[in-house]
Design a protein around this nucleic acid. Structure first.
Length: 421
RNA sequence: GUGGGUGUAGUUCAAUGGCAGAGCACCGGAUUGUGGUUCCGGGCGUUGUGGGUUCGACUCCCAUCACCCACCCCA
């Protein structure tokens, strides 16, 4: 019986896994220097956590969650996003008592039952940070800065940061009403999806892609005209902070985050040229979420980004962050006696962190040299019967062809020569 | 969930209803003690799967599965 991988998932094979490792390490160290510390939560949680936080009506909850019950009929879901679990952990472990400001980052797989597409998978990997504990607009800018500066540090150029404020529960309700007033007479001309959006999430009317719908929203009321005074001030200050940090952004009034918990600042990083799924990362403020999940009221802001799309973007710009690891040396043996005599030496080098390639099934000198070249090794170590007898080895520089003789010791002679200790 | 496209060797692709092939990769060899180039040799693969039409199907039809792309949604 042959098995195949579940739809919408992928294996990270050795020929690309090193890129993933590099990116993850890079994110870890970048976030760390801004004071964020790693948190890891389970891959599944009680379903109610996501229903309450993301919103019962959100697509993620309605049709994209992988749900299951365990033997005692408890209802769980594979996590579709990272913020709710982090906040759950924050509340459950009383991190708010330990410090008034909490800076967290996370990495890991998320799960959504979507139709797979370019840049969209059913199991996908996200990186993200969450800042909890202050409504200071500086932190909005800091969170965005971590994201933009990190992406910039990888060498990406064609990025666009789009910014909006979705207001607080008070003023956003008023805005929704204004939108409905505007669109109500236009309903017969709008697409069926927009007709659903009208009552469910009026804001979604603003980012429909149907041309006829696009044409009708020219005179729609703008969010910024409906922000109340505190929300407006907050947003202005966020913009000011970003400008001071020299992080370019564009205002986009139609940015609507898909999950219900967002308040005030909402942003998205767009990378054109990835196909339809052009959102590299997104996030925003969620001042009401912590209380909603059972903690005490705490302002917070965060973002999440997708590794798959990031890798696509890097590839699109031809950016090679790191090369596939290659062996430093290739061990060539002639004869059984040499193989036996060199086994311990091979282990000694490898134990000291030297990547040495070796294949005991290849016999001819020619085949072993071919393998050494193919492996990309810089040096060949050549040992035959006469070397064993003399207690020496030959070290050959594969690029220059230069060859010298060294003692077959515990590796110190070789490592010393190469300046590795 | 809806629509369009595509499934042939490890891979990239040929084969117009009439014998399933090539490049690359891989393995072996050209006096098992000095490589990369070159040369020679090495492929019966359920043509994604299951049905159907036909004397005959990789080719046409139906179904199904998978992948790609788009809608939707979002990372």
């Amino acid at each position: 019986m042959k098995y195949s991988i579940p739809r919408g998932t992928f294996d990270i094979l050795p020929n690309t896994s090193y890129k993933w490792t590099y990116l993850m390490d890079s994110f870890r160290s970048f976030a760390s220097s801004f004071g964020y510390r790693e948190i890891s939560t389970p891959i599944f949680e009680v379903s109610g956590l996501f229903e309450r936080s993301s919103g019962e009506s959100s697509d993620v909850v309605q049709k994209e969650m992988y749900r299951f019950t365990d033997r005692k009929n408890r209802e769980f879901a594979l996590r579709p996003e990272g913020t709710a679990p982090v906040v759950r952990s924050y509340v459950e472990n009383h991190l708010d008592v330990l410090a008034s400001r909490t800076k967290l980052f996370y990495l890991g797989p998320m799960f959504r039952y979507d139709r797979p597409q370019a840049g969209r998978y059913r199991q996908f990997y996200q990186y993200g940070i969450e800042f909890i504990g202050s409504d200071n607009p500086y932190y909005d800018a800091e969170v965005i800065a971590v994201l933009m500066l990190w992406l910039g540090s990888l060498g990406l150029k064609n990025l666009r940061l789009e910014l909006n404020s979705v207001g607080c529960p008070n003023c956003s309700a008023e805005y929704d009403k204004a939108l409905q007033d505007y669109f109500k007479p236009l309903l017969p001309q709008l697409c069926p999806d927009c007709n659903k959006r009208f009552s469910l999430k009026p804001r979604r009317l603003l980012d429909c892609k149907v041309p006829s719908c696009k044409a009708l929203r020219g005179g729609a009321p703008l969010q910024k005209d409906y922000l109340d005074q505190p929300c407006k001030e907050h947003f202005d200050q966020v913009c000011g902070q970003l400008t001071a940090m020299q992080i370019p952004f564009t205002l986009n009034p139609s940015i609507v985050r898909g999950l219900d918990y967002y308040t005030n600042t909402a942003f998205e990083v767009i990378y054109d040229g990835l196909g339809a799924q052009n959102s590299l990362a997104g996030g925003g403020r969620y001042n009401g979420l912590i209380e909603q999940i059972g903690g005490k009221s705490m302002p917070a802001i965060g973002f999440a980004g997708g590794f798959e799309r990031l890798l696509l973007a890097l590839e699109a710009e031809g950016i090679e962050l790191t090369a596939e690891p290659k062996p430093l040396m290739y061990l060539i043996c002639l004869g059984e006696q040499a193989r036996t005599g060199v086994a311990n030496y091979l282990n000694a080098l490898r134990s000291k962190g030297i990547y040495v390639d070796y294949d005991p099934d290849k016999n001819s000198l020619k085949a072993q040299f071919k393998a050494a070249d193919a492996s990309g090794a810089s040096y060949a170590i050549i040992v035959g019967e006469s070397e064993i007898a003399a207690g020496t080895l030959n070290l050959k520089n594969l690029a220059s062809g230069e060859q010298i003789s060294l003692p077959l010791d515990d590796g110190t002679a070789l490592l010393g020569l190469l300046g590795i200790d």
